[in-house]
Write a protein that binds this DNA or RNA. Sequence first.
DNA 1: ACATATTTTTAGACTAATCTAAAAATTAAG
DNA 2: CTTAATTTTTAGATTAGTCTAAAAATATGT
Lengths: 212, 212
Amino acid sequence: MLTTTEENYLKAIFSISERSHKSASTNDLAKQLETSAASVTDMLKRLAQKELINYIKYKGVTLTTEGIKNATQLLRKHRLWEVFLVEKLRFSWDQVHDIAEHLEHIQSNELIMRLDAFLNYPKFDPHGDPIPNADGKFTIRNQTPLSYMHESQKGVLVGVKSHKTDFLLYLNKLNIKLGTEIEVVATNSYDNLFDIKIDGKNKITITATIAQ
Amino acid sequence: MLTTTEENYLKAIFSISERSHKSASTNDLAKQLETSAASVTDMLKRLAQKELINYIKYKGVTLTTEGIKNATQLLRKHRLWEVFLVEKLRFSWDQVHDIAEHLEHIQSNELIMRLDAFLNYPKFDPHGDPIPNADGKFTIRNQTPLSYMHESQKGVLVGVKSHKTDFLLYLNKLNIKLGTEIEVVATNSYDNLFDIKIDGKNKITITATIAQ
DNA sequence: ACATATTTTTAGACTAATCTAAAAATTAAG
DNA sequence: CTTAATTTTTAGATTAGTCTAAAAATATGT
């Protein structure tokens, strides 16, 4: 059985190497977990001991098959709880991340199986991220970052990259949510702004960072 | 903010002094929490420091007003989660205690408020125990232990004293649940057995321990 | 009331997770 | 290809929670 801290390290390694497609460095982990590099080194030794990661001194870490299995199940639990919080308890998408961060560490397969059934086996969470099934398989779907779209191209928002509260609150204010239709009216590579039309009505301007 | 361990000590002190109507001793706590007396003494010092308990060396402990407030809110969370697990996730009453034991430590008032609303403000949990409201007030109702009832007296089961899995499974097997009508057919003080009739149909014999 | 049994506390040690400061290894730059 | 900058690891300390063994305080039985 893993401790909450060990689980958080596994998640961090998973998300860093998924994002960068390479092994996670000590400093990357220290930043993401808001701790010191020394603490990270200590924990990496422990996780390597338990054969959850492949760790070579000074060379960063990757997850073993067992580590990936653990990280995926955590993601599954986190995302199912987020669905519960939004769909059943009527939280908004900007409020659920921190609470799910705690709920995901509750140890009970039976609980997660039943929660999944209760929520009707959802495939995506409130931010559009895919929910792995009990075997760790994700549902993939076609998606392109808004920042990659060309002028006059249309699309429907199916997910957001960041789960930061202030970013999501900003989208709320712009009236953008999952399912919103977005058309790129004009891109401006000089000052990095995007003019977009929302649900065929309001025309607004956003920065390239938001578009990403 | 309290740690999970501190919260468990507060709950234990609360339940012991509620049951015995006096202060909780170090040994009582050690037994209930399945730990050593030495560990209990250590923790009592810490809780006294935080002014959550009144602690006099060698004389046992009681909760302060602040301690009672904390313990009551924990009970509220525990019992609301049990209702959720039974009513929404279809667990049976013998399966929910351990999971709720973990869920109760999640820190979020907003979560509990919304859970309460989602469950339609239940007043009792799946074992018949009253759920304190947000202000810590319990709903009281008339109840007598089966072991105190006299021959030919009838009653409806509104609660069980123990939450132990094997006890509850035994009740399941006897077809006894909350709401079951029970009539005392005969009491036998010599060998301490009770003959009871269930829902006016099956007649069975139980021990005084179960009746209690 | 005094010896014995029981309960409780203290002392000292262990583990998990963390820290700072210093040392060692790696990477980058001229 | 050597020096400087950066990254990572080690060393040593700290805190929460736990333990066992021993000492101290309290309770009990005749």
